[in-house]
Design a protein around this nucleic acid. Structure first.
Lengths: 147, 147
DNA sequence: TTCTAATAGTTAGAAAGGCTAATTAATTAT
DNA sequence: ATAATTAATTAGCCTTTCTAACTATTAGAA
């Protein structure tokens, strides 16, 4: 049980919520359309993996199928994504982002990204590299949540 | 607009939610008492700043006063914190953690911390140092949310 | 000093987002 | 052909959050 490992866990538990809060605030600020963080993440996922199923989206988001079904309902109603049926297996649905959806994701992303960048602009390059590396490591570790 | 800065913002936006999710899962697993992340953060804050007011807590959590009032209700009902009146200004309340509250926070913290540590145990010391440094930097940046 | 402003919290009521359990529809396997 | 499995939805509930309206207390101005 290394001291270092312990310190990492601890600081992670304290810092992660703060970062999330900042991100949430920036996302809200950059709204013209009301889009929550999970909705945003959903659209990003669908953008990256077009025609993905509800199940894979649920797994990515770490939510249950019913929750994601509702979340998708909301996005479909706002015409930000499309829900189709997969011909080869008609139980499955295929999700895709509409052009307006794409535009909204991209603009929200740009705004949030630039305000986050603003906050970090006074850091040295070495600090930034540290952060980048740390995030990449954490991304790998926490990507497949719990499996 | 450095590439590095941009990459940092981007990876931050992608990774932070995943980390939060993992933390939430661990907190739930380590429950014997049902305590949400915001409640946990509230108790941590009150532990650190005893006799703090509702307003300062609300500011720390990034929530509105009514929301925090309810959140505090919940903790008071579970006898995890105490809500008193400040004699010098009877409009203000003072919050403090009970001994059972303290015990629960500490055990939840220990459990979550050790399962997070478990996930990171295969990282090298240099990777861990990277993460630690990054978190400390981000903690400083995002501590005073938005001010 | 007395009335008005401002401040600290609470209450009420609505909306959103999550869950479990039950249901429907389609596919696979016996 | 029927049973079991899989994919998604619906129903119903609970929690968390918000805004708006309210109460109580203090501070300030006439």
């Amino acid at each position: 049980m290394s001291k270092l490992l312990d310190a990492c866990s601890q600081t992670l538990m304290e810092t992660a919520p703060q970062i999330m809060q900042a991100i949430r605030v920036e996302m809200r600020r950059g709204r013209g359309s009301d889009i929550s963080i999970p909705q945003f993440r959903a659209m990003r996922f669908i953008q990256r993996y077009p025609d993905s199923s509800l199940s894979s989206l649920a797994e990515h988001l770490g939510l249950t199928l019913p929750s994601v079904s509702k979340l998708v309902d909301g996005l479909v109603n706002q015409k930000l994504i499309l829900r189709g049926i997969l011909p080869e297996d008609r139980r499955k649905i295929t999700l895709s982002v509409t052009t307006t959806g794409s535009a909204i994701v991209n603009s929200a992303r740009t705004i949030a990204r630039s305000t986050l960048a603003e906050k970090m602009k006074n850091l040295s390059d070495s600090d930034l590299r540290s952060i980048l590396q740390a995030m990449q490591l954490l991304h790998l570790i926490f990507n497949d949540q719990g499996k």
